[in-house]
Design a protein around this nucleic acid. Structure first.
Lengths: 330, 330
DNA sequence: CTGAAAGCGCTTACAG
DNA sequence: CTGAAAGCGCTTACAG
């Protein structure tokens, strides 16, 4: 109701002039420094703010305070549902704490990660949330500098750092149990080639458990690809070509299971009757359109809260804590 | 290799002192104002920048220039794959043009949309990309103020504005053709209750085409719910209870089709043999795990480029253009 | 209870 | 080719 067409935006000075007080006073009131200020002045300033249509300019505040309310999240691959769930919940938790999240898509590339880290530093962001980070030169510098960071899913590639994620070894073991308890003995694993620590731990947990159960041979296929969907398809193809269709396949992620499913369907293999698929992640879509998939469920929509808590720890210099999130079957 | 542990970051002044020149000179060189400057000075400054580990502080620049390189995208519901695809492609296009995107999740709520619009203005963002915006008080003010905006998918709720989206009426008509050409005559539609213009147009296009083909009765179910998945499930339930299972169902979005699929499966109805489902959006996941769904494909990953182009138009005062994106069958 | 003043880091006309 | 200076909007010790 107040704004003028494209005129210069109102500043503290505008308000001060309109209210007949100093900008210091306006600043205090804007910032809720209400305890020392006469009720009358407060009222006059509030009115002036409404009249001139004042909105604070964070560039000024950031410059002065040498810190902003911005928090950067760097994540690979926005269209991965796991990332989307983490991003959505973190965004909500940060907003509740009075912060604004900047979401950067690194495409899992070290060069883009570095570009964004630099860009975010230039924005004077207050913290960095690294989801599935990748080793890179600038990241190394940031860690060495003690930049406030929380790592999610993948552990920090350099030194120590706050971390939120699940126990992937345990998750892998439970995937093994799923297949075993269904009576399946000849099972294989599908994974991305040169996977992250997440992949490695899930594989390790699975294989160790299987061996503990007495299974000595665990056929494995690793493939490269632009997405886990393609990786799953290709890895399943390699495995089927080599060992035929096994009774069960443990897929390192649900998306890999989707890829394997497609090949099975195209090959006339019934899932889960002829070949059972087990995944990890618990994509919420499963119960709607992939009822054939059993999966170790991870509640990524619960990650936001602990992520923000750990960031708070780091800000207060309380060291690098960890939050190992629970997971279940689904 | 240069950064010190948590010391104050280097500023232009630091560099200037180290290089023995004025901060004006450093500023020019940092900004590539290289034409007027001796090669020797440039070299000296470059060296000093590396030595002190200088990185620009955008708060200072923004304050001075009264504009930033930040662009805000406000979108409902980050975990909707349609939004994810639009966000990812826009982010890439903006980055290529030298901007940084801030992604805000409005949860389709007017109050959050307003909160974010205000917050983004405080960040001095240079433009606003409103994906599926909702009518709200602050949005109205922004539009009246002539804030640089591009609307995506849903048309601007107030006045005129730049727009990127598809021809939803045509898409609805083509969905009708899909069912008709498969020989199906008794078909219904599933939609969200109180849908947006997108929903209305898709419905309108579908019904008009069906009527043109001689179909007089088009059973329709509209349901409310937290997600299109639930809406699809519930709408299908209502329709089946009222009219039994029809030969075909046109679902206003793929997610609605997923919901309907779940009910069909639970009801022992074979899809697509007994009941054919047609959706709109062309979720890339379909070819992997939902081969039973035919869908009008929209290339949301192509939206980023035109969105940034229109933003550019607006910035240069070239008025409010539109880009109607193509769609196809899939 | 309130204000004058310094200064955060940067850009940019202006002078030389 | 380079620099001194003003000023963007804000916060905050300090003085009163």
């Amino acid at each position: 109701m107040t704004s003028k067409q494209r005129s210069a935006p109102a500043s503290l000075a505008t308000v001060a002039a309109a209210a007949g007080v100093s900008i210091a006073t306006v600043s205090r009131i804007v910032n809720g420094e209400t305890r020392r200020a006469s009720a009358e002045t407060i009222e006059r300033v509030r009115k002036a703010i409404a009249v001139v249509g004042y909105h604070p300019n964070h560039a000024g505040r950031t410059l002065r305070r040498r810190e902003s309310r911005l928090v950067a999240m760097l994540a690979p691959n926005l269209d991965n549902p796991v990332m989307a769930a983490i991003a959505a919940s973190t965004e909500a938790a940060l907003r509740a704490a009075g912060y604004v999240m900047i979401l950067c898509d690194t495409h899992d590339r070290p060069d883009l990660q570095d570009e964004y880290l630099n860009a975010m530093r230039s924005q004077v962001v207050r913290g960095y949330i690294m989801v599935a980070s990748v080793p890179s030169a600038v990241l190394k510098d940031f860690v060495a500098d003690g930049a406030p960071m929380v790592f999610v899913n993948r552990r920090p590639p350099f030194g120590r750092g706050a971390f939120v994620g699940i126990d992937n070894i345990k998750a892998g073991a439970e995937a093994a149990d799923m297949l075993w308890s269904a009576g399946l003995r000849r099972c294989g694993v599908l994974a991305p080639a040169q996977g992250s620590s997440v992949t490695r731990d899930r594989l390790k947990g699975f294989c160790n458990r299987m061996r503990a159960l007495g299974v000595t041979e665990i056929p494995k296929a690793e493939a490269a690809g632009r997405s886990h969907l393609e990786i799953g398809y290709e890895a399943a193809r390699q495995l089927a070509a080599r060992d035929g269709w096994l009774e069960g396949l443990m897929c390192v992620s649900d998306q890999i299971a989707y890829g394997a499913y497609r090949l099975a369907r195209e090959s006339g293999i019934l899932v889960p009757e002829r070949c059972r698929l087990v995944g990890i992640d618990g994509n919420p879509l499963n119960r709607w359109i992939a009822p054939w998939l059993r999966s170790i469920e991870v509640k990524y929509e619960d990650f936001g809260q602990p992520i923000v808590e750990l960031l708070d720890h780091v800000w207060h210099g309380r060291g690098h804590a960890e939050r190992i999130m629970p997971h279940g079957e689904a």
